[in-house]
Amino acid sequence: MKKFNITEKKDTRSGFGAGLAALGKSNPNVVALCADLTGSLKMNAFRDAHPDRFFQVGIAEANMMGLAAGMTIGGKIPFTGTFANFSTGRDYDQIRQSIAYSGKNVKICASHAGLTLGEDGATHQILEDIGMMQMLPHMTVINPCDYNQTMAATIAIAEHEGPVYLRFGRPSVPVFTAADQKFEIGKAWLIDEGTDVTIIATGHLVWEAIEAAHALEAKGISAEVINIHTIKPLDEEAIIKSARKTGCVVTAEEHQIIGGLGSVVSQCLAQNCPTPIEFVGVNDSFGESGKPADLMQKYGLNAENIILAAERAIAKK
């Protein structure tokens, strides 16, 4: 199995900030809007280098989505920044009508997604955003797994014509993807090949999936690990190919099981090659205050739970 030499932990939101800063230099059409969370979203570098292309919106997310839609008219590429909760649920109708239905080239960049936001609790821990965004026609949905992948994804979506939802988070997590990677929207990353079970993970759960695969190997179980960073469009070919090979699947995500990665993977498999599947995700409940690792343990979103799910999936073969 692939061994990753982890030398540092970083937050994915900083990967976004670094990507945005790089875009500021390389693409004069990129503009950024922020709803009073510039520091939290790590947008300071862009703001300081390009004050004329940075728009402070205040605490008014619905307005921010409309502004971003309008800024595309005349060729700008707007990146909006706020927490994932306020990037989706609060302004869903604005995104639906002014951005998605209108086919606007807006990049909705959403931080502090999921339980790992931690102590602020369930009001801010959105676990439904992937579902809401992937239901919208025209919308691309991306949830990268570490600092480097988030930075690469941020740069890649500027080149993609059309609305994108880019989801990332608050905590520092291992940096294990390549610093010089080329991010391909819609292309799964086969991290490790295996024969007994396929683990399909997104976002912060990818590292947990890798750890789970190593633990499974020690038990004599060969796990294939796939990173689906682009939930829509889904790389169905990679999923079907792996499911046919291993014969059972586990999905892992920091999101509700209903409507997230697990839902679309199971739809894909049900239609193309019915396969036993287990889901690691939040099971139809809100989150709560607590330390990220404690929350991930309590809600069953870590390597330990992926291992158990893999064993259940194998037993169903």
Binding site: A62, M71, I73
Partner: peptide, 16 residues
């Protein structure tokens, strides 16, 4: 929603 969109377009006109 239209005023927000129009203001965004107006700011792009200024940038351009």
């Amino acid at each position: 929603q239209g005023l927000s969109v129009a203001l965004g377009a107006a700011q792009t006109k200024k940038l351009n």
